[in-house]
Write a protein that binds this DNA or RNA. Structure first.
Length: 130
DNA sequence: TCGGTGTTTCGGA
DNA sequence: TCCGAAACACCGA
């Protein structure tokens, strides 16, 4: 948990190589890689990740990949929102769902993402095409 | 083998 | 504009 704190205090992550991708599928790796490309303070959506992964209708798979991500929070699954800019679901094993959602929002705020109620500021959206 | 998943998109009314 | 259905890929029972 200490590491996690450090992560969101502004330190960039070089932990990607540490992540064992052997247990992940090809599609998941694509998703994770795309996720890592999201800069701090930016967020993405399931749809965008799906597009980035090559499958326009792979959003469900993306959600599945995120929910079963090897290292929650290190893989910035918290930067993934629904297409309507709402948080959507977020759960961490061993953490209450409500707590996890709060944590997610807090992390995003800490990273510079601006919230408008339950939604995030569209300006904080990260576009793979830029 | 089957159904569910942190959802989205598309077509018809 | 709104509602219903279908959709890629993958995981667990």
């Amino acid at each position: 948990m200490k590491v996690v704190k450090e992560l969101f205090r502004g330190r960039e992550i070089d932990l990607l190589p540490m992540i064992n991708l052997d247990d992940t599928t090809k599609f998941q790796r694509i998703v994770y890689t795309a996720l890592m490309r999201i800069p701090r303070g930016k967020v993405s959506t399931y749809s965008m990740l799906a597009r980035a992964s090559g499958c326009r209708r792979g959003y469900r798979t993306v959600g599945n990949a995120l929910s079963s991500n090897p290292i929650p929070l290190i893989i910035p699954c918290h930067r993934v929102l629904r297409s309507n800019l709402k948080i959507g679901g977020f759960s961490i094993p061993g953490v209450d769902e409500g707590e996890a959602r709060q944590l997610k929002r807090r992390i995003l705020v800490d990273e510079g993402v601006k919230f408008e109620g339950e939604k995030v500021n569209p300006k904080c959206l990260w576009k793979s095409k830029s």
